[in-house]
Structures are given as structure tokens and as C-alpha cells.
């Protein structure tokens, strides 16, 4: 599954930022996520069950930008939770970067989240008592790393999202757009396989929302794999592929534009 290491693009994602001895990055086109006949059933009571996913098959290639859409109850949140290793499927298999994570124990799932996935939430979810720099460092904290060695990287990431001068501010001193940009920086700090964004612009006005989406676009152009859940067609139009969910199944799939063969057109 893992191809030869692609050097990180200079400028947007500094090569020095890669964790020392990190795993080889996936090459464009290689599948980093494979879902095979995924079912998820929630038991509500003694009898009642909710069949949230009814056999989803999905492959996500490295470097792609995927939007998941669908009405409430369609199973898109469940799918996102599964993709984010926050939950385990009732049936089916989920390969993430070559590892079968579908029935991993809780601690291993936590580790998979910490190493391979970056999260961006609708309501930013920064930790109030921490500064911008500390918030960006949170994913590293749980990998047992010495945070003092990552101060420079945090500063770089903050600079990347345009908040280089706010490193020691608290979330409540920032605007919503700024907070979301901190969350983007946080999702990058562990150099994940895939960034999951759950309605990242849902709490933002259209202007700041567009700024955040531009930032996400840039990340994708730099080679990051993005999976984004949204209600908004304009947001979804930025993705390579749009997946429409309905009743626990993938209803239809639209390819807006092909995945570029060259992973980093902007820096070619």
C-alpha cells in the first residue's frame, strides 16, 4: 500500500515538519482508505435498532478531496465517525493506510486517530484553557512526544494558517474564523494520512468560511487527503468527488474533476 516517500512540498508544508522517522507517505492514487461492506447498527433499546449503514463500499485515494453530502439520517455522520476511527463497524472491514482498524481495541483506535487522522470540527473545538500553540500541540501530547521539540513546527503551522502572531492567545481572544484556522493547524500537526472536516464552515459567515475552504484547498493541492462533510453544494463543488448518502448507502457519486496525476500542481 505504501509507495515511495513523496517529499513534502516546500513552502506550504515544510519538509522539516515531518516527524522524524515517520511512516512513508502514500502516493497519489494509492488507496489509503478502503471500506468493504460496512454495516453499522445501533441498538436503541431491547428491540429497537437503527441500521445506520447498510453495506458501504468506499475507496479513498491519497491526495483526493472528497465531499460527503446527504440529508440528516442518511448515515453520513456515522460514516465520518467510522472513517475517523471514533467508532467500530458492526460488520465489514475498514483498512486505513493498510491496517485493518475495523475491530481494533479502544487504545489502538486512539493511537490510530492520533497518528493518522486530523480532525476539523464544525464548532472548532479548541480547548479553552490552552493557548493557540498548546492547542496545536495537543495531538502530539498523546503520542508521548516532547513538546519542546515541536515549538518551531507549531509556529510554522500557525504561520501557514496566518496566525503566526497569535501563538500565545487564548481561543476566546480569537474570532471564529481564526479559531477554525487554529483547528486546521492542529489537524496538520501530526502529519495525518487524511483530514476529516465535519461541516468546517457551518459556524462561519460566507467570507470567513471561504477563507477556511481556500486554506483546505491549498492543503489538498499540497498533497493532503481531505474528507469533508457538508450540506452546502458550493462547498462540495470544491471537491474532486462528491458522495451522496441516502438511507445508509451511497446513493450516487459525482466526480467534479479528476484527481490530478501530479500531486502538487501549484508547486510543480
Amino acid at each position: 500500500m505504501s509507495g515511495p516517500a513523496v517529499p513534502a512540498p516546500a513552502g506550504s508544508l515544510p519538509a522539516t515538519s515531518r516527524p522524524a522517522g515517520g511512516r512513508p507517505a502514500a502516493t497519489n492514487g494509492n488507496a489509503i482508505v478502503q471500506l468493504q461492506a460496512i454495516h453499522k447498527i445501533y441498538a436503541l433499546g431491547e428491540e429497537a435498532q437503527v441500521h445506520a449503514l447498510r453495506g458501504v463500499d468506499l475507496t479513498i485515494s491519497a491526495g483526493s478531496y472528497i465531499a460527503i453530502m446527504g440529508p440528516s439520517g442518511s448515515g453520513k455522520s456515522t460514516l465520518l465517525n467510522l472513517l475517523g476511527c471514533l467508532d467500530r463497524p458492526t460488520a465489514g472491514r475498514y483498512f486505513l493506510g493498510g491496517d485493518d482498524v475495523s475491530q481494533m481495541p479502544d487504545d489502538a483506535l486512539s493511537e490510530a486517530r492520533g497518528l493518522k487522522i486530523g480532525f476539523i470540527f464544525q464548532s472548532y473545538n479548541l480547548i479553552a484553557q490552552l493557548t493557540v500553540q498548546e492547542n496545536i500541540q495537543v495531538p502530539l501530547l498523546y503520542q508521548g512526544r516532547d513538546l519542546r521539540q515541536y515549538n518551531a513546527r507549531c509556529a510554522e503551522l500557525a504561520g501557514l494558517v496566518g496566525l503566526g502572531d497569535r501563538l500565545h492567545h487564548r481561543p476566546n481572544q480569537l474570532s471564529g474564523g481564526q479559531q477554525q484556522r487554529v483547528a486546521v493547524a492542529r489537524s496538520l500537526v501530526n502529519d495525518p494520512l487524511m483530514i476529516l472536516a465535519d461541516e468546517p464552515t457551518g459556524n462561519l459567515d460566507s467570507k470567513t468560511g471561504a477563507e477556511v475552504l481556500d486554506l483546505i484547498d491549498r492543503l489538498n493541492q499540497a498533497g493532503k487527503t481531505i474528507v469533508l462533510v457538508t450540506h452546502d453544494d458550493r462547498v462540495a463543488s470544491r471537491a474532486h468527488r462528491v458522495i451522496h448518502m441516502r438511507d445508509g448507502l451511497i446513493d450516487r457519486e459525482v466526480t467534479n474533476r479528476p484527481l490530478p496525476a501530479n500531486p502538487h500542481p501549484a508547486h510543480a
Binding site: 475517523g84 471514533l86 479502544d106 486512539s110 486517530r113 473545538n125 480547548i127 495537543v138 495531538p139 498523546y142
Partner: peptide, 16 residues
């Protein structure tokens, strides 16, 4: 609770 959820999502194990 939400902070706990965020930390868990960002890789915190139960013992953390």
C-alpha cells in the same frame, strides 16, 4: 465533556 471528546478524537487514550 466536549473537551474530553476533543481530546479523545485527537488521540488521547482512556488512561490519558
Amino acid at each position: 465533556t466536549r473537551e474530553i471528546g476533543v481530546r479523545r478524537a485527537l488521540g488521547a487514550k482512556r488512561r490519558d
